[in-house]
Design a protein around this nucleic acid. Structure first.
Lengths: 186, 186
DNA sequence: TTCACTAACGCAAATTATTTGCTTTTGTGC
DNA sequence: GCACAAAAGCAAATAATTTGCGTTAGTGAA
């Protein structure tokens, strides 16, 4: 039986997963990443290392799993006013979160695993959020970029800069929004 | 003295680096990635494991180092005809290379390390190539997108798709070129 | 409720990887 | 050639990972 996707809530499997995830989050916030090892995580979570090895395989996959679950958005994008304003506010928060030290590291963890399941999941979260904004714009009859345009010309440049460059300022995100809106309205 | 940047050519340090890099490349092409370990690499390269540990730290950093050096372009973009044609040809090759199994893995290796030096280096390679194309366009008086536009609206979407999605077809790159050229000419 | 069944866990021994102190080699500048 | 320093080799100590086997806990049927 797959344990990763649907551990029955309240079961032993779910308890172990929760304990391990929490242990990882605590350690990542308190210690240097190089000092986070599976035996230590296991100790804090009150499980044996072999349990973690059997369930996740290695540290990278465990970190990717934790990172993916942390990258899941809490709720829907805030309602500010127009769809464009909602988008601007959402992008600012998204960019800040991803560009922070923790965010960068989560991105890297998610991308480091061999199978792209976690990465795909994260991209899916982003697309869901954008779809909500698109739906709102449609309800209001506001012109709005398509999901493809938003992913290609707003999300992609932000993530690329975060991953490959060091430089990333807040105003840049606003500029991208302006550009993608302008283009969509033309 | 820093050994990573300027090992004097022909020195012992350079020989070890070459042997280790070659050993890694061979193993990555022949075996499953999970079976590539530092002791094995060391054995093939005729060095002791401790040499690798001291120089690179861990497997991730070594793989990132090797990947970064493999991502360095061989020469200048080919001259086909107009700057736009040159760009189209270059992007096609770039996208194919990055989207291949080996390319994806190299990207992930480069991004996995904590300090972004290798990632920055790779982005720098890409920008150098694009600058050559931009310079050619300027010489010919052809209209052409700026480096920023090319990075944001051509390179970023390609890399994002490769990293986060599975789907990536060749025609998509051409479409992006058309879009970024259209925009630049407007 | 009980009972049989199975997935997941704990434990501990065996294996493998990593770290480290010390010695030796090799290339560089005098 | 000689002295110096950086990097490599070696081997012992430590730490992480794998694995076989016994145990526990949740699940579903009677």
């Amino acid at each position: 039986m797959g344990h990763r996707e649907n551990p029955r809530p309240g079961g032993r499997s779910a308890r172990v997963q929760a304990a391990v995830h929490q242990s990882v989050r605590e350690m990542l916030s308190k210690m240097d990443r190089a000092d986070v090892t599976i035996p230590l995580i296991a100790q804090r979570a009150n499980v044996t290392p072999s349990t973690i090895y059997r369930r996740w395989g290695d540290l990278q996959e465990l970190l990717a799993d934790v990172a993916a679950s942390r990258l899941q958005p809490e709720g829907e994008p805030a309602r500010i006013g127009s769809a464009r304003e909602d988008l601007e506010a959402w992008v600012e928060q998204y960019a800040d979160e991803m560009a922070s030290g923790v965010g960068r590291q989560m991105l890297r963890d998610v991308l480091a695993t061999i199978d792209g399941a976690n990465a795909e999941k994260c991209s899916g979260y982003t697309q869901q959020q954008l779809c909500v904004l698109i739906a709102r714009a449609r309800e209001n009859g506001e012109p709005f970029p398509s999901l493809g345009e938003l992913m290609d010309h707003l999300i992609s440049p932000i993530i690329y800069r975060i991953l490959f460059d060091q430089a990333f300022d807040a105003g840049y995100a606003r500029e991208l929004v302006a550009r993608v809106m302008r283009k969509s309205n033309a």
